[in-house]
Each structure stands twice: as C-alpha cells, then as structure tokens.
Amino acid sequence: MTSLAADGIGIAFGGVRALDGITFETAEAGVTAIIGPNGAGKTTLFNILTGVYRPGRGRVRLFGEDVTGEPPFRLAERGLSRTFQNLQVFFRMTALENVMVGHHLGESHNVLRHLLPLPAVFAGERRAREAARAELAHVGLEGVANRSAASLSYGELKRLEIARALAAKPRVLLLDEPAAGCNAVETEALSTLIRRLAGEGIAVILVEHDMAMVMSLSDRVIVLDQGRIIADGPPDAVRTDPAVRTAYLGADG
C-alpha cells in the first residue's frame, strides 16, 4: 500500500513554475529521499504535501484518499507530520512545552473544561510532561528540557522540531534538511533515529543536502531539478544516473 502520493502536482509563483508535473508514490514504511540543487522546489513540494500550500494543479493522496486542499491540521489528524527547513519553533516556550504541543492531537479539545481548575486536567498535564521528557530524550535533548527554546542552538532546535513532530505519533514524517547545523556525531545519531523510525513502520520522506547521509539511509531517492523529477530509484542507480550527475552532483565534480 502507498502512504503519500503526488499526482501531477504543479504550482507557479508569479509566472515562475516552481513545480511541474510531480508524480510519485511512497511506500508505507522506509525512507524516501528527495534531493536536488537549491531552488529545485523541494520545500515547496513539502508545503503542498502537508497542506500549507494548495497546488495549482494535481492531486495529493494520503493512504489512498484524496486530500488535496485539506488544511494541515486535518492532514495531521490523518497521521502526517513534518519539520521545517526555516525553523518554526515556539520561541516563547520551553523545549519541553514545544514537544507537548506535539501531543495536541491526543489531548482533549474541550475548551470549556480547560477553563476550570480540574484535577483531571492537571493530571493529564503531568502525564504529558513526562511523555514529552521521554520524547526529548529520543533526540538527545533531555538536558535542555526546561530551557527556553529561544536559548537553544540551531542544531538543537532542528532536533527539537523532530521531537515535536514525533510526539504527534505520525505514520508519515517529512523532514526538511534535519541535519543542517548538526555536527558529524549529531548527524550519525540522527541517521540512527531515522533508521529506527523507518523500521517501526513510519514512512519517512527526507530532504537533505548531506549526500553521505542520504545515500546510506534511503531506500529510494527522488531527484528534483527546476521543479521536475529527473531521476527516481534506488540510491545506487540514482548516483550513477548521467542526468543527475550533470544537473546536480555534477556541480560537485
């Protein structure tokens, strides 16, 4: 079965075609990497797949259902989560609270109940705090749980976003350049985490410029260039694809 599927997706910004005829399907588990030079349209594709943008053309399907145009919070209810290339952190909160926001889907949405000092609500908060602490530990941030997010380093914030996304217990997880700002040790830990998530049955879609990480981690690599897919296949096939070499890897020699 497929998890996330794009069907002829296109979008233009003021006449510039950022994406044109993007079609692919991802498996229910495993790591799919989307690579491509700067400005290829990777983040724009993520924004369309997660409902942040509405595509000009084409459809998006999630677990077989057409979800084109559904708002992000509805897609989140269906099991979709993501991180952002340009950080979208709740900077007025602590690291722990950021992750607790990720629990939102599993929490009571009864605003009237939350207006009263109910012991049941306080108990729920205590449990949420404990769970968030464990989720921070998954990305190695247990030490900064009570620090303000505004005081964390770039690499820490990247991992904080991953912890927050995981707190929603997603079935499909989109990561936009998660290793940016991470050192070699942190990147290795991140690879281990992603491998484990894929093993647990999550479909991970990874946008990343760190080629070593992409090649070692991915089951499949999709290459975008100027808004089009120019290659799609297993890492080894993509690595040796002449079109990819000229358009993308060619730049590195």
Binding site: T50, V52, S81, Q88, R92
Partner: peptide, 17 residues
C-alpha cells in the same frame, strides 16, 4: 498551550494538528 503555539508560529501549530 495551543493558544501560545498559535501566537508563536501558526504554521507549526497547524502542522501539530
């Protein structure tokens, strides 16, 4: 917490459901 999330980043809040 949801209100404060909306304050800080609407897009991240939406993506969190």
């Amino acid at each position: 917490r949801a209100l404060r999330a909306v304050h800080d980043s609407e897009v991240a809040a939406m993506v969190a459901g």
